[in-house]
Design a protein around this nucleic acid. Structure first.
Lengths: 346, 346
DNA sequence: CTACTGTTTTGGAGCGGTCCAAAATCTAGC
DNA sequence: GCTAGATTTTGGACCGCTCCAAAACAGTAG
């Protein structure tokens, strides 16, 4: 079918329209500078030939291209997928504005996360700006991007990335909401399962400790650290907690996935006669909303984060201040997993 | 910190090593053709300067670059994420073999899927080969790639993509396994909820009808088509089925997500005194394995699909036969959602 | 009609590589 | 020691586009 013949280039269009290649280039970069007559003639020729500018060549020729690169730390994380979706939607909207074209994702492999080769490929591509979703260790390589390139980190703490602007919700506050909620429900023995050695994990642990201390529950602080956020690990951590002599009546989890693993342990615990135990997650992914799981969780305000991030990505000039952070308000979403009052008072 | 100065180019290295730029280029493309002395000198200079070839420029200069492009139809689909992970892992392994560098994902937005601009960006990039994961409408644009570029479709039926090689499991057979399983458990009133207008949806519907007919249950065939695979839609579809006079005792779902929605309806049904109803999903995503959900599902043999796909991607020459399809064997994974015998016999 | 602004259009030099034909160097062989 | 043949290096054109300084083309004024 479509004869896989060489794609038409700017010169082909120029020849057909009877103008110089520079003029054709101009039509695509600063159309307002070219006279109406020529512009039309060029566009016509382009249409007939099915021409569209080669974005590769364009990137190479300019110091920074016309698209946004998106790096996702983990394809499996539903929160990240949600952020990417919203950002893309927002960028498409502005698309008609003119300078935004296509978004690319350089990926991840679940375990190792984005590697440095991928990062350097991104740099070669010369994006107008880069969005980093999640925490990517080798992202520090992004420092090599020209200073005019915006770097925005969404939904994570920018580590080793001094130039980046961060957009995320306030995790310390978020965990605070959870702790408060559980206390309101009559809990005092509240444990926390952490599953990330990264900055985010630390912040959530911190938030937990702070909130507990502030509520006068310092002596009940109990943090379990596990290596990853796998369901299996989480199940085991929770099981251990529930079997210990200082068993909690509520377990706050690092994220929804951890909470799901912990929930299993709680279910077993209850099935074998144990008392009710509250579970909470974090991120408010669609998993938390499933009826079968119905998990209390913290919502980041994904849409707001995405919109803010999109704005920053297309913003022409960056503020120069270091460590710019936009903190949004997290909100608590209460579901079955914690929506009961603890019997027997404190 | 890292002074964001111009990255060193091949010419910088050449100057430092006292050779021509062509020689430097050679060192990176066909190292066996350059003498040991010079090779070492060049590599040394490159190391000192921190040089690595600009993959953008390389792609532009060659008719086909040295990397694999990966297009994912839907970031939210865990099956796709799993496929991508395995393919990447496999490619990394071969990486040391030399010609494979980095993988890129051009994304999707959940709703509209990969748009044609993204596809044309991919073409501009001149990948050595392209992996399409899932069904991407505008992928037909990939036809414009040079004939030497391999196109592999994994985990989906290649529609409008005559040149592609497809790697997937046999869905007709897969649904057959499910139907057989349910019949073994004593079911005869088995319904199917379809959630995709695409080829895959048709195949699964077909597989269901065929298997039912073959088992002499033609009169019990009951297919519900819904617009998307959202949980909400699925819940409603299942609810309707269960309330109808010809209520089934088993519901086969298009995929795991649909099954989860349907499961909610079943749970409600049982809670209000209805009889047990079996539910099955498809894709055997991690969701199906969650204890809280425990869904019988069909496994595609994701790892095998990914490995086969990876192999085809790096294969030097393509078989020329049209519509090449590699069909793998699906396997049934039985879990709680259907692992009980229907009382009252047939 | 010429001089003098202001606006369009154009040729050519890159961007950072690859690739190929020609040049340089190395090996033998006589 | 000189030449043919094989092997290694090299200069330059090119991939498709942008960018900039110079050229061409108005338009207005003197």
């Amino acid at each position: 079918m479509s004869t896989s013949v060489r794609r038409p280039t700017i010169r082909d269009v120029a020849a057909k329209a009877g103008v110089s290649k520079s003029l054709v280039s101009l039509v695509y970069s600063s159309p307002q500078e070219v006279s109406a007559v020529r512009k039309e003639r060029v566009l016509e020729a382009a249409a007939e030939l099915g021409f569209s500018p080669n974005f590769l060549a364009r990137s190479l020729a300019t110091s920074s291209g016309t698209f946004v690169a998106i790096l996702v730390a983990d394809l499996h994380n539903p929160l990240f997928a949600a952020i990417v979706d919203h950002v893309r939607a927002k960028l498409e909207d502005r698309g008609e504005y003119g300078f935004m074209t296509s978004a690319m994702i350089a990926n991840p492999d679940g375990t190792e996360s984005v590697d440095s080769r991928t990062v350097s490929a991104i740099i070669d591509l010369r994006p107008k700006s880069v969005l980093v979703v999640g925490t990517i260790p080798s992202a520090e390589g992004l420092d090599a991007l020209p200073k005019k390139t915006n770097i925005v980190v969404a939904g994570a703490v920018a580590e080793n990335l001094p130039r980046a602007i961060t957009v995320r919700s306030d995790d310390v506050k978020g965990i605070g909401l959870v702790v408060k909620h559980l206390i309101d429900k009559g809990h005092t023995k509240i444990a926390y399962i952490n599953a990330s050695p990264l900055e985010i994990g630390k912040m959530r642990s911190q938030g937990y400790s702070d909130a507990m201390a502030k509520a006068g529950l310092k002596s009940h602080i109990q943090i379990v650290n596990q290596d990853d956020d796998s369901e299996r690990e989480s199940y085991l951590s929770a099981k251990n907690l529930l079997q210990s002599k200082s068993a909690p009546t509520a377990i706050i989890c690092y994220n929804d996935l951890v909470a799901i693993g912990a929930q299993e342990a709680v279910n077993e615990h209850m099935a074998s006669g144990g008392g009710k135990v509250a579970i909470t997650g974090y991120d408010n992914t669609y998993l938390a909303a499933l009826k079968q799981i119905s998990l209390t969780s913290i919502d980041h305000g994904t849409r707001e984060i995405a919109e803010k991030a999109a704005e920053l990505l297309i913003a022409e000039k960056h503020s120069t201040k270091k460590d710019e952070v936009h903190l949004l308000e997290p909100t608590l979403v209460i579901r079955d997993s914690s929506n009961f009052t603890l019997k027997g008072g404190k």
